[in-house]
Amino acid sequence: MAKIKAGRFGWRKVMLMYETDAYDTVSGDQSCFLAMSSLVNFFKAKNVTYGYFNLEKNRHISLRNNLRSEIGLDYADLFLGPMCDYVIAAVARYAAIWGVPVVTPSAQANAFLDKQGQFRTLTRIMGSYHQLGAVFQPVMQLFDWRVAGLLYEEFDTTEHKGHHSCNFMMKAVYEGMKVKPTYRKFLSSSPRLDFASLLREMAKSARIIILCASPHRVREILLVADDLNMVSSGEYVFFNVELSTR
């Protein structure tokens, strides 16, 4: 991010939008706050006016009212962040109407591919999940694999968190592979999960299994798979899409 050339684009007012722990599963607690704080010295050196907008502390008001009252229609020349896909979707739609650029390491879901329409001012510095589907497709073709099993983590609807990032990632893989899929999901809030039953069910139709879950869940799944002789038998292939680095 330090390579951003504010002078080149004429940016003089930048709004740093973040949720303190929005990416805690990737790089730890308060990672978003620390990332935004690291940009402050850079903006000071470039004589760029900046402001903070903590989405977490402003949940009691609608995002639209927040943007109007706290930012205004002409406050910022650039929005950095936020991380949550649901929040960035709303911010990017308003920013497109106002003609304000939005730069974020998030927004990797396929829905944000609409660069000619509602997300025309959005720039994603980490690409998209669509690229993962493009990676798996030639691998499946090379080995003539016809069916893939997708096993991923999801939020419980009662938690009101929307979809897990693994849901968005698996959708992109499903659309990109162009092979017959079978899928199973499990709730991240469940303290005890019967992975043996999930794996046995998937084994009825797939030998290629793609995983997306938190590191400790992936470890549990592979240990159970080993107990079921799915690892050492040579009959199954496991891919783990690592969205977390902790």
Rank of each mutant, 00 (worst) to 15 (best):
L78E: 02
L80H: 03
L80R: 02
L80A: 11
G81K: 07
G81Q: 05
P82M: 01
M83I: 08
Y86C: 03
V87T: 01
I88N: 05
I88H: 08
A89Q: 10
A89C: 12
V91C: 06
A92R: 01
A92F: 13
Y94K: 06
A95L: 12
I97D: 10
I97F: 15
I97S: 12
W98V: 02
W98I: 04
G99T: 00
V100Y: 07
V100K: 12
V102T: 08
T104Y: 06
P105Q: 06
S106L: 14
A107P: 02
A107M: 11
A107N: 05
Q108C: 09
A109S: 14
A109W: 11
N110E: 13
A111G: 02
A111F: 15
L113F: 04
D114T: 13
D114V: 12
Q116L: 12
Q116H: 15
Q116D: 15
G117L: 03
G117V: 14
T121V: 15
T123E: 09
R124L: 03
R124I: 11
G127I: 14
G127H: 03
Y129G: 00
Y129F: 11
H130A: 06
Q131T: 04
Q131Y: 07
L132K: 01
G133Y: 01
G133D: 03
F136P: 07
L142W: 14
F143P: 06
W145K: 07
R146C: 08
R146K: 13
R146A: 10
A148L: 01
A148P: 02
G149P: 06
G149H: 04
L150T: 00
L150I: 00
L151I: 05
E153Q: 04
E153D: 10
E154Y: 14
E154Q: 10
E154H: 15
F155N: 03
F155V: 07
D156K: 12
T157I: 13
T157V: 09
E159H: 09
K161V: 02
G162T: 13
H164E: 09
S165H: 14
C166I: 07
C166G: 06
N167K: 05
F168S: 03
M169Y: 06
K171H: 15
K171N: 14
A172C: 11
A172Y: 11
V173Q: 00
V173S: 02
E175D: 08
G176W: 03
M177E: 11
M177K: 07
K178H: 01
V179H: 00
P181S: 09
T182G: 08
T182M: 01
R184S: 08
R184P: 07
L187S: 01
S189K: 13
S190W: 05
P191G: 14
R192Y: 11
D194C: 10
F195S: 00
S197K: 11
L198K: 04
L199C: 06
E201V: 12
E201Y: 00
E201D: 08
M202Q: 15
A203R: 01
A203K: 13
A203H: 08
K204E: 15
S205C: 12
R207S: 02
R207L: 05
I208E: 07
I209L: 05
L211Q: 03
L211V: 10
C212K: 00
C212Y: 07
S214L: 14
S214N: 15
P215W: 04
H216F: 11
H216Y: 15
V218W: 00
E220F: 13
L222A: 13
